[in-house]
């Protein structure tokens, strides 16, 4: 889709999955300096992402396992996944790995407060940090849910999404030009099955965060009662929402060029200010609580 917008024909939608299956059947090559960390961390990192999936209400409310953890737990699991990728990159003992690892952790550290503030901005009025409860309030409120503070928080979340998933203008997922890559440098030395899990994990993280966007910003249509037609309608709507959000991100990526690394801090600062502003609006004007 991104390729189409850039005037290229682009690979088919199924291509990434074909690559995945191929890679899953391949053996690994490990660098000679590595320790047990390289042997296991791809799988640990992937598992942490998988564990975060049920914390988002995809198809019904409250989410499948919404009761056992809230969005702060989700942030913790994402950070756990990132931690293991970052130490894996250092394990190889090459300069690119270290470069990518340092940059990734730098962005992660700066993104964390923004994520927290966005959670507070969405969750404050609902009195909960659980995605399911926030979405349920949105459904109950209907159109009145789309208040100005919420829009601010939404913009902040989209900026955060670009940073967290390494999209342009922050990082270019397609680049292999050594000086500009962040995430790619991180996983440069992964191969075979590990590379498959890392690439798949990246896709899961993107879908996860987009799904969260859909649940928080467009909660309507998520069934609150268990009936087959409602679930089916919810599923269709979910796919529509996801595709819509993907199109939005793809469009944003096509419109901007890669930024210098340190401008990412500006972007995150902007997002933090927006989220904080959203909270201030909610409480000063008295729209919430």
């Amino acid at each position: 889709m991104k390729a189409r917008a850039q005037g290229r024909p682009g690979p088919s939608l199924g291509q990434p999955y074909r690559t995945l299956v191929k890679l899953l059947g391949k053996d690994r090559i490990r660098a000679d300096a590595t320790s047990a960390i390289s042997r296991y961390s791809a799988r640990i990192s992937f598992a942490a992402l998988l564990a975060a999936v049920p914390l988002v209400p995809w198809l019904f409310l409250p989410g499948p396992l919404g009761g056992i953890g809230d969005l702060i737990v989700l942030v913790g699991l994402l950070a756990l996944s990132r931690f293991f990728l970052a130490i894996q990159a250092l394990d190889v003992g090459t300069s690119f790995g270290g470069l990518g690892s340092s940059r990734e952790m730098w962005m992660g550290a700066l993104a964390e407060p923004v994520f927290l503030l966005v959670i507070f901005a969405f969750g404050g009025p609902a009195g909960s940090t659980q995605a399911g409860v926030i979405a349920a309030r949105g459904i109950a409120l209907g159109a009145a849910y789309a208040s100005p503070p919420l829009l601010l928080a939404l913009v902040a979340y989209v900026l955060l999404l670009l940073v967290e998933t390494g999209r342009l203008p922050v990082d270019n997922p397609a680049t292999h030009l050594e000086l500009t890559m962040i995430h790619e440098a991180l996983v440069l030395e992964a191969s075979g099955r590990d590379l498959a899990l890392v690439a798949w994990g990246e896709g899961i993280k993107f879908t996860l965060l987009v799904g969260l966007l859909a649940a928080l910003a467009l909660p309507w249509g998520i069934p609150t009662v268990w009936t087959v037609p409602l679930l089916a309608a919810g599923a269709i709507l979910l796919v529509a929402k996801l595709v819509g959000a993907d199109l939005l991100v793809g469009h944003l990526e096509t419109r901007v060029a890669k930024w210098r690394l340190f401008r990412v801090a500006d972007l995150l600062a902007l997002a933090a200010v927006l989220a904080f502003g959203s909270l201030a609006l909610t409480y000063v004007i008295g729209g919430g609580a």
């Binding site: 090559i29 490990r30 799988r43 992937f46 598992a47 564990a51 440069l188």
Partner: peptide, 28 residues
């Protein structure tokens, strides 16, 4: 988390038990 670790281990072995890792110098 423990369950998901099992899942990812299973996925890792989905297409057969891998041979021993080939160990060589880093690619860079």
């Amino acid at each position: 988390l423990a369950g998901m670790l099992l899942v990812s281990w299973a996925l890792w072995r989905l297409r057969g038990v891998p041979r021993r890792d080939t160990v060589g110098p880093a690619w860079e």
